Computed example of a mutant assay.
Amino acid sequence: MPKVKEKSSSGRFASQQRQSIVFNKDLGQHILKNPLVIDNMIEKAALRPTDVVLEIGPGTGNMTVKILPNVKKLVVCEIDIRLVGELEKRVQGTPYKSKLDILIGDALVTKFPFFDVCLANIPYQISSPLVFKLLAHRPYFRCAILMFQREFAQRMVAKPGDKLYCRLSVNTQLLSRVDIIMKVSKNNFKPPPKVESSVVRIEPINPPPAIDLKEWDGMLRLAFLRKNKTIGAIFHQKSVLELMETNYKVYCSLKNIKIEDKFDIKEKIESILNESGFADSRARTMDIDSFLTLLCAFNSKGFHFVK
């Protein structure tokens, strides 16, 4: 079997026989093979010599070997032990080996260390939870350059009224500035995925809004149950009313607030929505400020949300 020789810009990384590896599609292993795409992603990251970089899912190291010469330290997180072995071979005997720190495990449960920049070709099935894990990471990182399935990337940047506008759009844009910076054809991967991809740049907003993010997301889950329905119609549903009543009674119990004898949850919710002016609004057209105002209207009357 012929050897495939891949070098960094310094030309000091060893050639390896990697064609025998069978990639695991269940783990989302679609290896980015086009060096021009890799170069563009690294360029967009604007790396500094003092940076600590986190790379998620390095695969066989095509991006890894190009990052190493440009940074102080590179931490990679890889779940497949076979690919970890390939990665170790590529840096063996190079001056960059001491810069590389390998974390073996699932990126969703592995604790990430401090990092300035994140670069990743993310397995599509973990895109959403991984984005919010990164946005919850402290201390804050400077930016992340991430590869996603194109429709997922489009949902991240969608605006009110767009067809793809959803809970992901609102949550992502609440916590970060996000832009699509590159489109990538499926032919740039081995094996090629069934969908096209896009590269997104994420810059966390620091400090974040002073709200309870679990409660915020709980409200969004309800609002986007049927994003084309009015908020009033959604909060008239029996299951939603029961949830809101349970949450309200728990809140009153914790605060030693006496619940009035003729308490009517439906009447209370209608009053809040009418007073705030959102009864006839629809989630698909509401912007972040509108959702923040709606949350404040509920909270001011003692109504809270949980996941």
Score class of each variant (00 low, 15 high):
S8V: 11
S9D: 09
S10C: 14
S15F: 07
Q17W: 13
S20C: 06
V22D: 08
V22T: 14
V22H: 08
H30K: 02
I38H: 05
I38K: 07
N40I: 14
I42A: 04
K44T: 05
D51N: 08
I56K: 08
P58M: 09
G59Y: 02
P69W: 00
V71N: 01
L74T: 06
C77W: 12
R82C: 04
Q92F: 15
G93L: 08
K97R: 15
L100C: 01
I102Q: 06
D106P: 07
K111S: 13
F114D: 00
D116R: 07
A120Q: 03
P123I: 00
S127A: 13
L134A: 03
F141V: 02
R142P: 14
C143V: 15
M147C: 10
E151P: 01
F152S: 01
M156C: 08
D162Y: 00
K163L: 12
L164D: 05
L164Y: 07
S169Y: 04
T172V: 15
R177N: 13
I180V: 14
V184G: 09
N188C: 13
F189E: 03
K190R: 11
P193D: 02
S197N: 05
V200G: 04
E203K: 15
K214F: 04
K214T: 00
M219L: 05
R221D: 07
F224P: 15
G232C: 10
A233H: 12
H236P: 04
S239A: 14
E242G: 01
Y248M: 04
K249L: 12
N256W: 12
K258N: 05
K262F: 07
K262H: 05
D264A: 02
D264G: 01
I269T: 02
N274A: 13
D280S: 12
F291P: 14
L292K: 14
T293N: 14
F298M: 06
S300W: 11
G302R: 10
H304A: 01
